[in-house]
């Protein structure tokens, strides 16, 4: 029995570890400026936890096999522990685990503590059950106001009908192009396209419930929270077509809430944007 337990633990450990080692399933390519650092931090964490994983499981297997009751009348060792050992592994664990998170700190800071550069291109990302819309500000650089749902009027304590959303006419974001000057040149699309090697700031907003913007290749995920405008920035370094998935449960069609993310060369991007503007 002892041998069986030890063997099974060893086999499980080696098999589990093998697939990480062999990269049988792995991250997709990284197409972002910040993603390389995330991938390196992952590899470092994998090495450290991998060593602990293998050592701990093998130690367990060894102890189980080595110290089985052999029926030889030997007594177990009478010991209540060892404070020196206790202190050693406490300090080792502290240094290792806290150290690891501190080492990754600059990556997080680079993504979140520093805002987008002043010249960064801005795009609004809108989530709704179960679709994505993207809004480009047009030549004026301004996003016009949206008229979604009803507005609360504190003066009267009543809700006023402010809704201009109309899926039939393609006005998904409730823009009032006739009255709001800033809305006139706004471009609303169903695909997110950005030029390569340019910093992009996304402003994440939701019309109904919480969604989450996830592009694997960008190493980017951020929730879209109703009532909040959450900025996030990145620079894509490779052209191509990728998938945007929703990563926060948003209702019955959560699994099919997807869109495409295209990274284009600057000329291609300009052409695309012109086509989109013409189609508004």
């Amino acid at each position: 029995m002892a041998l069986a337990v030890a063997l099974v633990v060893v086999i499980i450990t080696l098999l589990s570890g093998y697939f990480f080692w062999a990269h049988t399933w792995w991250f997709p390519i990284d197409i972002s400026k910040h993603g390389g650092a995330i991938d390196r931090q992952f590899t470092l964490t994998l090495i450290i936890t991998g060593i602990i994983f293998v050592l701990a499981q093998l130690a367990l297997a060894y102890a189980v096999w080595r110290y089985r009751d052999r029926g030889d009348g030997r007594k177990a060792r009478y010991s209540h522990g060892n404070n020196k050992l206790e202190a050693t592994w406490t300090i080792a664990a502290t240094v290792l685990f806290i150290g690891l998170t501190l080492m990754g700190y600059h990556i997080w800071a680079g993504i979140h503590f520093v805002g987008a550069a002043p010249g960064a291109m801005r795009v609004e990302v809108w989530g709704q059950q179960f679709a994505w819309y993207f809004r480009y500000p047009g030549p004026d650089g301004q996003f016009g106001p949206v008229h979604i749902g009803d507005k609360y009027d504190p003066a009267t304590g009543k809700y006023i009908d402010d809704n201009k959303v109309d899926d039939a006419t393609g006005n998904y974001l409730g823009l009032d192009r006739d009255h709001d000057a800033a809305s006139k040149d706004d471009i609303v699309t169903a695909t997110l396209a950005v030029p390569v090697n340019q910093q992009v700031e996304l402003i994440l907003r939701s019309k109904d419930v919480t969604h989450s913007f996830f592009v694997r290749e960008l190493r980017l995920k951020q929730d879209l929270v109703p009532g909040m405008e959450i900025p996030i920035h990145f620079t894509a370094t490779k052209t191509g077509r990728f998938e945007i998935a929703c990563a926060e449960l948003c209702g019955l069609g959560h699994y099919k809430m997807r869109a495409f993310f295209e990274v284009m060369t600057e000329p291609d991007y300009q052409k695309w944007l012109q086509n989109m503007a013409a189609a508004q």
């Binding site: 450290i48 990754g104 993504i111 694997r216 190493r219």
Partner: peptide, 11 residues
């Protein structure tokens, strides 16, 4: 240990 690190949790 992976999930507790914000930059890895992003993914």
């Amino acid at each position: 240990i992976f999930l507790g690190q914000p930059p890895l949790d992003i993914y």
